[in-house]
């Protein structure tokens, strides 16, 4: 297990490092600075601005400062010296630099404000996905080929096929205008999060329902389920204690992609419902050419998704020991 973990962790770190490096050089290769579109500044002011963002340094030095193997920030204590100095600067120390558009804020401050909002939205969406998807999948499997099963399967296909802003449009028409239950947009209070969380979670609920239905049907046909029934266990116990844990495996391995998908989907949902989350910041950053902000969010989400995938893999090996064994046999 441990060698596998170490190897995966090293691989994750390498991926993030490559993303950071590519993003940095792409960003620097773009002709002109981020301040070109504004009206021409006096030369002295422009020099000041360039100095503040370290644009006057050679590229390798900017890179070293951004990634942070050397702490080159003159406002802090120097490399390996001074009082309790950070050895690392830049991304390695978790510092994503100043925002190019919101002049008074650093990317870290922007993320600090918006990330809790996005995470809350994402978690609720995950709750919706599992809370609706799992029971739907299990019931559909238990009543295979019944009208309920067919209806749920149709619903799942629709949920997977439709983009979430289409679902959002219909839900807003229904539950905001036709039957005013929820506010149309904005952030504040649990009521405002209900509709966005549903919109974000429903496609994944559809996937979860599909996966758990297939797995459940497969598991229920196994011999040991028949044995459990033959022992005289109540049907409830057979389903919940014996069948469900095995049927959950594909759902668990789907959680990694689902989390990535929910983060991606939150771009649209946050914009639709005017929620001040990281996704809105990212889109605005991309539209305004706020490179450091866009890059910061990309790096953060890459790290988040990679770590989540790792966690899912570890959990998977823990739940299904056969896999862990297979992995060590492969090594």
């Amino acid at each position: 297990m441990l060698p596998f973990l170490v190897r995966r962790l090293a691989w994750t770190v390498a991926t993030i490092f490559v993303v950071v490096t590519c993003a940095f050089f792409l960003m620097r290769a773009v002709r002109g600075g981020p301040f070109d579109s504004e009206r021409a500044l006096p030369a002295a002011v422009e020099e000041q601005v360039r100095a503040r963002y370290h644009l006057d340094w050679p590229v390798w030095k900017q890179y070293a400062a951004y990634v942070g193997p050397l702490n080159l920030d003159e406002h802090r204590a120097r490399f390996l010296g001074g009082d309790g100095a950070d050895v690392f600067g830049g991304v390695l120390a978790g510092d994503l630099g100043p925002s190019f558009k919101y002049r008074d804020l650093t990317v870290n401050e922007l993320l600090g404000q918006s990330l809790p909002v996005s995470l809350a939205l994402g978690l609720w969406a995950l709750v919706v996905a599992l809370g609706i998807g799992l029971p739907a999948g299990i019931f559909a499997a238990l009543k295979k080929d019944s009208a309920l099963d067919v209806a749920l399967r149709l619903g799942a296909t629709a949920g997977i096929a439709l983009p979430n802003f289409v679902i959002a449009g219909f839900l807003v028409l229904l539950f905001v205008f036709a039957w005013p239950l929820f506010p149309v947009a904005g952030y504040g209070g649990a009521r405002a999060l209900v509709l966005p969380a549903f919109v974000l979670g429903l496609p994944f609920a559809a996937y979860v329902a599909r996966l758990s239905r297939t797995a459940m049907i497969e598991v229920l046909a196994q011999d040991w389920i028949r044995t459990a029934r033959a022992k005289g266990l109540p049907e409830r116990t057979v389903i919940l204690r014996h069948a469900l844990p095995s049927a959950l495996l594909p759902v668990i391995s789907f959680l990694g992609p689902a989390a990535a998908g929910i983060l991606t989907g939150s771009l649209v949902v946050e914009r639709l419902f005017a929620i001040p989350g990281t996704g809105s910041h990212f889109v605005n950053g991309a539209l305004n050419r706020d490179y450091t902000l866009a890059m910061g969010v990309t790096i953060l989400y890459t790290a988040l998704v990679s770590l989540l995938n790792l966690a899912v893999d570890v959990a998977y090996g823990w739940i299904d020991p056969r896999l862990a064994a297979g992995r060590s046999a492969n090594q």
């Binding site: 993303v19 993003a23 889109v283 991309a286 539209l287 866009a294 990309t298 890459t302 998704v305």
Partner: peptide, 25 residues
């Protein structure tokens, strides 16, 4: 391995980032 690494990225973010940069060119 390259495919695995790419698949582990939140690709849409990367694509948006690249589109942003390319619009400068």
């Amino acid at each position: 391995r390259v495919v695995d690494a790419l698949a582990s990225l939140p690709f849409v973010f990367v694509v948006i980032f690249v589109i942003t940069l390319l619009s400068a060119w």
